[in-house]
């Protein structure tokens, strides 16, 4: 009863990756590379900030990777991949010009319309600056459509900071208040030291009804940032977060990304915090 005895190809199969070409590779840290990709037929990916794709290394496996570029730059899309397992190690082997399997864009991203005209606070931790970058780039590319823009970013050490060149441009840009911190630093680091919530003291008082906050980061950071925002009077329904879970199929079937009754890959990964009331596993 081997299914391989019989094959009927289905071009629309949801599990079938399509080849994308790698047009640029940049080393961000010893563990993280940024890959710029395009479809061979020149189409755009058509994603929303916050969505993800499944990246296939045929023969090794598949893993979910956030799209770290904005749809406003539609001629390509970018992925930042941290080398942690078999698939991501294999991805790190690929070079400019190679083909790589992509399924997506998948999941629910940020609904930009809910941010237009609002003051924005983005709090990102660790490698979650990558998914946050798709939204940051969007806001920077269409800056006049948004109000005040605050960006808080924390990493464990200066060596682990992602997109350092871009951070410098954001810090210099007067239309953004960009603050960066590291948990611990040695040597030449002249910036802030401390967890990301220590940066809140640098922000002006929020225009509460008009502020929309975005939290993306590791599970430990999550709860504390949300508490900080709530303490500053931001209502739950104005806080958005992106949940990291194990996504195997990316289409709401395989069950790995369940967060109580929700599927992070289909219902999220971007959620409004109000949707997560009583979804205890989301923040715990």
């Amino acid at each position: 009863m081997l299914a391989t005895e019989l094959q009927v190809d289905s071009p629309l199969d949801v599990y079938r990756p399509r080849p994308a070409r790698v047009i640029d590779v940049e080393r961000l840290t010893p563990l993280e590379n940024r890959f710029r990709l395009e479809w061979p037929d020149g189409r755009s990916l058509g994603h929303a900030p916050g969505q993800f794709v499944q990246v296939s290394m045929l023969g090794v496996g598949e893993c979910p990777i956030s799209i770290c570029s904005s749809p406003t730059r539609s001629e390509y899309f970018e992925l930042t991949v941290r080398r942690v397992g078999a698939v991501t190690s294999a991805i790190h082997q690929i070079e400019k010009g190679d083909l790589i399997g992509i399924r997506g864009p998948l999941g629910r991203g940020f609904d930009i319309e809910r941010f237009v005209g609002r003051d924005i606070v983005i709090v990102a931790g660790g490698c979650a600056l990558a998914p946050a970058r798709s939204l940051i780039q969007y806001i920077m590319d269409e800056r006049p459509r948004f109000g005040e823009f605050h960006l808080l970013y924390g990493a464990r050490s200066p060596e682990e900071l992602l997109f350092r060149d871009e951070i410098v441009t954001w810090e210099r840009d007067e239309s953004v208040s960009c603050h960066v911190t590291v948990d611990r630093a040695a040597g030449s680091w002249k910036g802030n030291v401390g967890v990301v919530t220590t940066l809140f003291g640098r922000l002006p008082k929020f225009d509460k009804p008009n502020t929309r906050a975005v939290v993306i980061g590791p599970p430990v950071m999550f709860k504390f940032v949300v508490m900080e925002l709530l303490a500053r009077g931001i209502p739950q329904k104005q806080i958005y977060c992106s949940l990291e879970r194990r996504m195997k199929c990316g289409i709401g079937k395989c069950g790995h990304c369940q967060v109580n009754h929700l599927y992070a890959c289909q219902d999220g990964p971007v959620f409004n915090l109000a949707e997560l009331t009583n979804v205890r596993e989301a923040i715990e």
Partner: peptide
């Protein structure tokens, strides 16, 4: 089996097995 794939000369082919 969901897919069968071949990798030849940097190209790849993936076919769904239904």
């Amino acid at each position: 089996t969901l897919l069968q794939f071949d990798r030849v000369d940097g190209q790849f082919k993936a076919r769904a097995c239904i």
